[in-house]
């Protein structure tokens, strides 16, 4: 009964969407602003990756909101799970030698790859969020492989807070020194397509990388320890 009602409802929604979609041709340019960003993005921001220049320069304020949502979700997860009674001593079965050695070998390499991704965010595909996710996966590997190890929670929180502060302070400096808006690019843009270019974008992406990495690691820590 419930399935039939749901299917009828979905069919009605589907008909409405089909009528709407006939006015949206596939594969044609639809916005003018996207073309403006592609044409002028390199001169105005200095970043060769146009998506990065949209995320951090033209729409940097949205990114601040996004980071705030991630922060709120991590805090909410900690608050929801905080009152759970900790399961006494976890039954830890030590991992085998091969697993432990492989884990120890791969951990720094994954960290290095994550750092590469977020340092080169303005030149190649990637950026702070992706690099942060890769760094968190390295910590997840430690949790699954070398099971008796644990991250330092205080250091995790300090890293997260400092990275968030760097983002906001860079934005406020841009507001006072550089121009008339939050996160304006006040540093020299340098030569296009080199590592030290495009002003504040690499600095903010490094901060976002540390913040996302430590936040996701905190989420993993909460879910593994308290559940």
């Amino acid at each position: 009964m419930k399935k039939i009602i749901s299917l009828i409802l979905l069919f009605i929604i589907c008909l409405g969407i089909v009528f709407c979609l006939q006015d949206i041709p596939f594969g044609a340019a639809k916005t003018k602003v996207g073309h403006y960003y592609i044409d002028n993005g390199r001169e105005e921001t200095g970043a060769t990756n146009i998506v990065t220049s949209v995320v951090l320069n033209y729409r940097g304020f949205d990114t601040l909101g996004e980071v705030t949502i991630l922060f709120l979700a991590a805090i909410g997860l900690g608050a929801v799970l905080a009152t759970l009674k900790k399961k006494g001593k976890r039954q830890i079965e030590p991992a085998s030698l091969i697993l432990k050695t492989g884990c120890r070998f791969l951990f720094p390499l994954i960290l290095l790859f994550g750092a590469y991704i977020f340092i080169h965010g303005h030149l190649t595909p990637g950026g702070g969020f992706q690099g942060g996710a890769i760094i968190a996966s390295a910590f997840l590997l430690v949790y699954l492989g070398c099971r008796e190890r644990k991250i330092n929670e205080v250091a995790n929180k300090i890293t997260e807070s400092i990275a968030g502060l760097v983002f906001i302070v860079m934005g406020l400096i841009g507001l006072t020194v550089g121009g008339h808006y939050f996160l304006s690019n006040f540093m020299p843009k340098g030569e296009i397509n080199t590592l030290f270019s495009s002003g504040i974008i690499p600095i903010i992406y490094i901060a976002i990388g540390f913040k996302v990495g430590s936040e996701l690691t905190g989420i993993i820590d909460n879910l593994m320890e308290k559940s």
């Binding site: 340019a29 639809k30 916005t31 602003v33 996207g34 073309h35 960003y37 592609i38 993005g41 146009i50 998506v51 949209v54 995320v55 729409r59 949205d62 990114t63 996004e66 949502i69 991630l70 709120l72 979700a73 991590a74 909410g76 997860l77 929801v80 799970l81 759970l84 950026g127 969020f129 996710a133 996302v212 996701l216 989420i219 909460n222 879910l223 308290k226 559940s227």
Partner: peptide
């Protein structure tokens, strides 16, 4: 080149999706 604006929006949306999934899973645990 393809339009960069939807790609930037989806970058935002993916991160928010991860946050929503983590929060929903913690509520499911409770």
């Amino acid at each position: 080149m393809v339009d960069p604006v939807p790609q930037a929006l989806v970058l935002t949306s993916i991160v928010i999706g991860v946050a929503i999934l983590a929060l929903a899973l913690s509520l499911a645990i409770r």
